[in-house]
């Protein structure tokens, strides 16, 4: 780890200015991702701006839903009574991730920003366009078992590793950010990007911008009864998803009146399954309908040498998560 400057401002405006002045600076939140990357030599910052003193920890109800401060810890969010009651999908997804110790440290803002776990990204002795643009993609012809099915490019086939983000996508989160040019709001669907020719960019946050909160709309709290977060992984806890599915349904008279579905571990961003959601609307709760929805969701999937199993595992997981959300399975 190199020598770097460290500041810990108490005001948001100071933090933003501080970063704007420093081209090679980083905000430090829980540090569970950033500090690891510094130890591995993936990030060699000149300055760290510790944002933990900023007043961005609050979780509160608003007229339009709920406001979650960017510095609220993953555990605080997952244990928040109102979130558990109205947005249980979010709590389930967060609790499926990492370990209790990590969730106590990790923040909502940091989780949105966490970088891929692609092994080639993590090892400076191997090529990675995301880490070192132009060096090549180690995963494309490499061990790509954990990699993407959707929206990848020949520059990068890495996935976004977050569980929380999958639920955030299904729940239509809005991400509030602020920078020297002032605040703006970004829909979760527009926040993370696909790799395209610039895999070094994970998201559309501009240099110097700070995430201040994530807001969930009141409308999404209608999806609080029939929910499931299914995460398939190589061990029962403390492992990233091979694939995960966030499923939440609104059901009236045994008919699905609305569906929210998103997948993790399959793309460079949390992968909302909009076409499958549309299909499910108005349908009866049957395994057959779930299978059709899964089939729709999988259209356009493309596998690589070692992740072909995901072409089967992903649709199976969609079906199973829907069965679990609706009580067809337990």
């Amino acid at each position: 780890m190199n020598q770097f400057q460290y500041t810990r401002p108490a005001e948001t405006a100071v933090a933003i200015k501080s970063l704007a002045k420093e081209p090679n600076g980083y905000f430090l939140a829980g540090g569970t991702n950033l500090v690891d990357m510094m130890k591995m030599g993936l990030v060699v910052p000149d300055k760290l701006i510790d944002i933990n003193r900023l007043p961005l920890k609050k979780i509160e109800r608003t007229p339009t839903g709920i406001h979650i401060g960017a510095l609220a810890s993953n555990s605080e969010v997952a244990e928040h009574a109102y979130i558990k009651a109205q947005y249980p999908l979010l709590a389930l997804a967060i609790n499926a991730g990492a370990s209790p110790q990590l969730r106590n440290m990790a923040t909502v803002g940091g989780n949105l920003m966490q970088r891929t776990r692609c092994p080639y990204f993590f090892d400076t002795a191997m090529p990675c366009n995301k880490r070192t643009p132009g060096s090549g993609c180690g995963a494309l012809q490499g061990i790509n078992r954990m990699h993407a099915l959707f929206g990848a490019s020949d520059k990068c086939i890495a996935v976004n590793p977050s569980d929380m983000n999958v639920a955030m996508a299904a729940l239509d989160a809005t991400i509030h950010v602020t920078g020297v040019k002032g605040p703006r709001a970004i829909n979760i669907g527009d926040f993370h990007r696909l790799p395209g020719d610039h895999p070094e960019l994970d998201n559309t946050l501009q240099k110097g911008e700070l995430i201040t909160s994530v807001d969930l709309p009141a409308a999404s709290s209608a999806y609080n009864k029939h929910v499931y977060y299914l995460k398939i992984r190589d061990r029962t806890s403390y492992a990233f998803a091979l694939v995960s599915v966030a499923a939440a349904l609104h059901i009236e008279n045994n008919t699905i009146t609305g569906a929210r579905l998103a997948m993790g571990g399959v793309a460079h961003k949390p992968w909302r399954l909009t076409a499958a959601e549309i299909f499910l609307k108005g349908k009866a709760i049957t395994e057959d309908n779930f299978k059709q929805a899964a089939q729709i969701a999988m259209q356009g999937a493309k596998a690589y040498e070692y992740n072909k199993f995901k072409l089967k595992l992903a649709p199976n997981a969609i079906v199973q998560s829907l069965k679990l959300a609706t009580g067809l399975a337990s």
Partner: peptide, 8 residues
């Protein structure tokens, strides 16, 4: 990864 002879 046998291309590099390194563990991933």
């Amino acid at each position: 990864d046998n291309r590099y002879g390194r563990y991933i």
